[in-house]
Amino acid sequence: MKVQELIDNTGQQMRKGILELCILAIISDEKEAYPSDIIKRLEAAEMIVVQGTLYPLLARLKSAGLLDYTWKESDAGPPRKYYSLTKDGEEFLNGLMSNWQKLVEAVNQSTRSLTANNKEVK
């Protein structure tokens, strides 16, 4: 029970660290992204637990000049904000992405013995 709790907590910390990267990647993928759609994709990937997490992050990225938004009319209610990457945002995302790839390699290297053992067991 205790170990499971620790796993959950640490897993949450890991996800938190790469949440920014995922949000930016989703926005880059959609070109113009509506926050509720970003939430849907993040939830499908089990990246966030509570939806409120997204909004302060978007605000921070926006005030850092990495994101921008435009208002668009919607058929279902009031106008909606659509977020897109700025030039700086694209550069930032590329930088994060290469960082992430390095990290994946580093982690794979450090845990190689574990994954090798696992395969033998299977």
């Binding site: 909004y55 926006k62 904000k81």
Partner: peptide, 28 residues
């Protein structure tokens, strides 16, 4: 509580307005 929590953050009004808009969607 949300307003109080973010009152000293940059982009305070946007965060709270976005959260309210999202809650409205969820209610719908």
């Amino acid at each position: 509580t949300i307003h109080k929590h973010f009152s000293s953050s940059e982009g305070y009004e946007e965060i709270t307005a976005d959260i309210e808009a999202r809650m409205a969607e969820l209610f719908q």
